[in-house]
Simulated assay, not measured.
Amino acid sequence: MEQRLVTDSVTSEKYLRIASISIATYDYILTLPAEWRFYRSQSSIFHISLVCALFILMRYVSIMAMVVSNYGYFSTTYTQQTCQRYYIVAPIFKAIQTMISQVILGVRTFNIVRRDRRIGIILSLLYLLSTSAEWFADLFHGTPNVVDGNCTSANAGKVLSTWFYYLAVILYDVVIVTVSTVHLLRYNPISSRVEQLIRVLIYDGIGYFIVLSASNILNLVFYHTTNIQTQTAAASVGYAVTWIMTQRILIRVRENTRPDAQRLENVIVARPTLGAQKRVMSGLRSHFESKSHSKGSKSSKSAGDAEFRPTSPHNSNDVELDVRVRVERSVVVDYKDESEHSSSWVK
């Protein structure tokens, strides 16, 4: 009976790993055009934006994590000695992948909360605490597990600790998604275009949390068991879900805020109240900022109407995690050459 249960668990793990590889490969092919647009929007290969760099890291660190993990599992040539040097590689890539994902969510939330310094400090401390706990839980009491020539990492100590890794990830996601969603719900956009953008940010954040939490809870349950044959059953699923959901956040926001989607229009976002004119709505920072310079005219800005302003396509990729709404009023002064009789009007 026990042997049958072990066989069933091994078969289930194989199915889960093959399914996760298939889904990840399909999503990779599906998002190749989006990846090309990220590259094309860079001004230079030596001047890559933070958003593009995070996108690349998320994408290819995730691939490495899946390759390393599944190679060790499906291989049939490992011995206890060779596995001793290899089993730790997959957990390291898992921790790095999670760190990149949490950086993306943290920066996204920091900009949504209008770059509030106090909240930024809290988010930084939360990130350091979370990643420290994750690395400790991921590597503590990890042992090589060799079965039929394959090599995986198992948690076989007296105290099971790997499950705490996923608990730390879940708690971090709860805080980040709660903070970002609460602040997004406070915005009162007038433009339907900006309302759509805010809705996308809310849905993406909640969707990310629901899907990834389901994967993390599944891994938490598996790693909470003493059966080392089933502990890593959903590990590959976690790699794929983290990869797909995190990069989708970057792609969706970029697609909804690129300059050509805005038709190069200035869009009124919100009208400040009388007592709120001194408060700049800098929560959703956008790359839609442009300085209009024309011959014979000057432009100055003061607090007033909030609006998005588009930039050049080369800077369009800065929007994904760096979206800000600025409250301002433009005052344009036309003037003639000093050699003529000066006359001006203010609009």
Rank of each mutant, 00 (worst) to 15 (best):
E2W: 04
I18G: 03
A19F: 07
S22N: 10
Y26S: 12
D27P: 11
I29R: 14
T31F: 08
W36P: 15
S43D: 07
H47G: 13
L54Q: 02
V61W: 02
M64Y: 09
V67D: 07
Y78K: 12
Q81E: 05
Q84R: 13
Y86L: 00
F93N: 03
T98R: 12
M99G: 10
Q102A: 14
V103K: 09
G106S: 12
G106M: 07
G106Q: 06
V107W: 02
V107H: 04
D116Q: 11
R117Y: 12
I119R: 07
I119T: 14
Y127T: 13
H141S: 11
V147C: 14
C151M: 09
G157Q: 11
T162R: 10
A168I: 11
V169Q: 08
L171A: 10
Y172P: 02
V174S: 05
I176P: 00
R186L: 13
L197K: 02
I198C: 04
Y203N: 01
L212E: 01
A214M: 13
L220Y: 04
F222G: 00
H224E: 13
A235K: 07
A235L: 09
I244C: 09
R252N: 02
E255C: 03
T257D: 02
P259D: 12
A261N: 08
N266T: 11
N266S: 15
I268H: 13
T273W: 08
L274W: 09
K278T: 11
V280G: 12
G283R: 01
R285D: 01
R285E: 03
H287V: 04
S290M: 13
S290L: 09
K298L: 13
S299I: 15
E307T: 08
R309I: 06
S312K: 06
H314T: 12
D322G: 10
R324M: 05
R326M: 12
R326T: 04
V327D: 08
D337W: 12
W345R: 05
